[in-house]
């Protein structure tokens, strides 16, 4: 090339990027706060960051929700020092599985199904993805399935609570405006 290019590289930052970054930051903050909570069983967590994912899904669609969810997994694990540790891969498997289910769940008729349905379905997908990875990789023995009822109970309880919180946030009269 005869023309010299300037050495600074500019990445255009769109309003979408700011919005996703803001929600991802909120999700990461909840992940970090939650990491301080004691858990009776590894893998049983409230998953509060999923509230943010649900709100983003309802407001801005699946693409944004996927960004927020995956940024949350990667950056959240960096913050709590779990990046590339087994817990990171379990979280990633859970996030990918629940995003896949949310991609389908968002097409449920909104007249009959609200964020609670999406949340519970995503929570079940989350433990499904995690336990599938755990069985395939970490604990290659059918014994992990003995824990399935406990995980499913936790998913049901926390999925319902998170869904209710998300529904309440979404139903708030003020409404969250992008960039406000």
């Amino acid at each position: 090339m005869a023309v010299m290019t300037p050495s600074t590289i500019e990445l255009p930052v769109t309003a979408d990027d700011y919005r996703i970054a803001r929600y991802a930051a909120a999700a990461i903050a909840l992940t970090v706060a939650e990491a301080a909570l004691p858990s009776p069983l590894p893998g049983i967590k409230p998953g509060l960051a999923n509230i943010i994912v649900l709100v983003v899904l309802a407001r801005y669609g699946w693409r944004d929700a996927a960004w927020v969810s995956l940024l949350r997994v990667v950056a959240g694990s960096l913050v709590i020092g779990q990046f590339l540790a087994p817990g990171f891969f379990l979280a990633l498997a859970g996030a990918l599985a629940s995003l896949a289910v949310l991609a389908l769940a968002q097409h449920l008729p909104p007249r009959f199904f609200g964020p609670v349905s999406a949340s519970v379905l995503a929570a079940f997908a989350h433990i499904g993805g995690q336990i599938a990875l755990a069985r395939a990789w970490l604990v290659p023995h059918d014994g992990v399935f003995y824990l399935l009822p406990l995980f499913a109970t936790a998913a049901l309880v926390f999925g319902t609570i998170n869904g209710l919180v998300a529904a309440r946030l979404l139903a708030a009269p003020a409404g969250l405006k992008a960039g406000s």
Binding site: P109, R111, G114, V116, A167, L169, A171, A174
Partner: peptide, 21 residues
């Protein structure tokens, strides 16, 4: 989100559940 939750009013939780839910 926190500010919004604080000001979300007193919507009863059960009204957030639709029949399908």
């Amino acid at each position: 989100l926190l500010a919004q939750a604080a000001g979300a009013g007193q919507a009863a939780w059960h009204t957030l559940l639709k029949p399908g839910d």
